[in-house]
């Protein structure tokens, strides 16, 4: 990647987490494993997913709109998951 491309690229991080009230069996198991490793005082553990994306644009507003669309259409299942978008 050359300097021009670097300048015209936006890096973004999308974080997908389970909505409140949705049972998270994997989070529960992780919580139990932390306890058995001796980490005391760990409250609830909820697990989720992180996506790092590179977009070929310099337009931040356009990138955000596109990322929102990606989340709604594929990256998150909005029946059970929330998402947040952060641009680097």
């Amino acid at each position: 990647m050359d300097a021009f491309e670097e300048e015209h690229m936006i890096k973004a991080r999308v974080t997908v987490t389970l909505k409140n009230g949705v049972l998270d069996p994997q989070g529960k198991a992780i919580e139990g494993a932390l306890g058995s490793l001796g980490f005391d005082g760990v409250g609830h553990v909820r697990q989720g997913k992180v996506f790092d994306l590179e977009l070929q644009t310099a337009d931040k507003a356009k990138a955000e709109a596109e990322l929102k669309d990606m989340c709604e259409k594929l990256l998150a299942n909005t029946v059970i998951e929330n998402y947040t978008i952060a641009l680097a």
Partner: peptide
Amino acid sequence: LLEAGMLPGALMRNASL
């Protein structure tokens, strides 16, 4: 069908994992 939005709800990991 759930992921396609053709039915209500979602299927999560089995409670037993």
